[in-house]
């Protein structure tokens, strides 16, 4: 039963991965990407890593893929134009692709032949400890250095987004909460007696 579930999900992952790069419509690509994430999450569940599976769904499907979808729909990319040079690059691309494919097949044969990691399987914690607890035990102890360093990587990404896109325009109306709150009736409203038929000056 477990084996059947594994093969179905693995096949769906690989196929949808292939569809991501082959489908003509970029929106379909993103949808296949989401499918690939979902089936990869299923594979994690089979390995006993439920927390990672949920994380994958929440972060990648919920945030990243939806963001991709927004970007793809907002950008006006001319895909016909992008494909124009395709034939020119096909020979060298095909050579590189065939080389990579041969390597992958050789690796797959090696794995099928002797098995990876010399028979070691990932360490599974006992049922008395949940995934989150297991990760929490090492995240701030054994891996504190790498965890903090990853935080710095994210900080760089944030600085980069600001440096490359933030424009300080001069004539933009911004919300100033202080002036909003301190606004009084006398400097906002004026009551004028209007005589009939004369209107207001100014």
């Amino acid at each position: 039963m477990l084996a059947i579930a594994f093969y179905i999900m693995a096949a769906v992952t690989v196929l949808s991965g292939a569809m991501v790069i082959t489908s003509r419509n970029p929106v379909h690509s993103v949808l296949f990407l989401i499918l690939a994430f979902f089936s990869a999450a299923g594979l994690f569940v089979l390995m006993g890593a439920e927390f990672l599976a949920m994380l994958l769904v929440v972060v990648y499907v919920g945030a990243v893929a939806v963001l991709f979808l927004f970007v793809v729909m907002m950008l006006d990319v001319d895909f016909v134009k992008l494909r124009q040079g395709f034939a020119n690059y096909l020979p060298i691309g095909a050579v590189v692709g065939v080389l990579l494919l041969t390597e992958l097949i050789m690796i797959a044969i090696a794995i099928a032949d002797r098995g990876a990691a010399a028979g070691q399987s990932p360490q599974v914690y006992g049922p008395e400890m949940s995934n989150i607890e297991a990760i929490g035990r090492v995240l701030y102890t054994d891996y504190v250095y790498l965890f903090q360093a990853s935080g710095l990587v994210l900080l760089v990404a944030m600085i980069g987004a600001i440096v490359l896109t933030l424009q300080h325009r001069v004539h933009v109306k911004r919300q100033d909460i202080h002036t909003q709150v301190t606004r009084r009736r006398k400097n906002a409203v004026e009551i004028v007696q209007v005589k009939t038929g004369e209107g207001i000056q100014e």
């Binding site: 891996y143 250095y145 790498l146 360093a149 990853s150 710095l152 990587v153 760089v156 990404a157 600085i159 980069g160 440096v163 490359l164």
Partner: peptide, 21 residues
Amino acid sequence: LIALYVGLELQSLSLYILAAF
């Protein structure tokens, strides 16, 4: 290998931004 990758990405991401400064 993780420290290798995290260090490399920290360096590369900063350099990408600097290149487009």
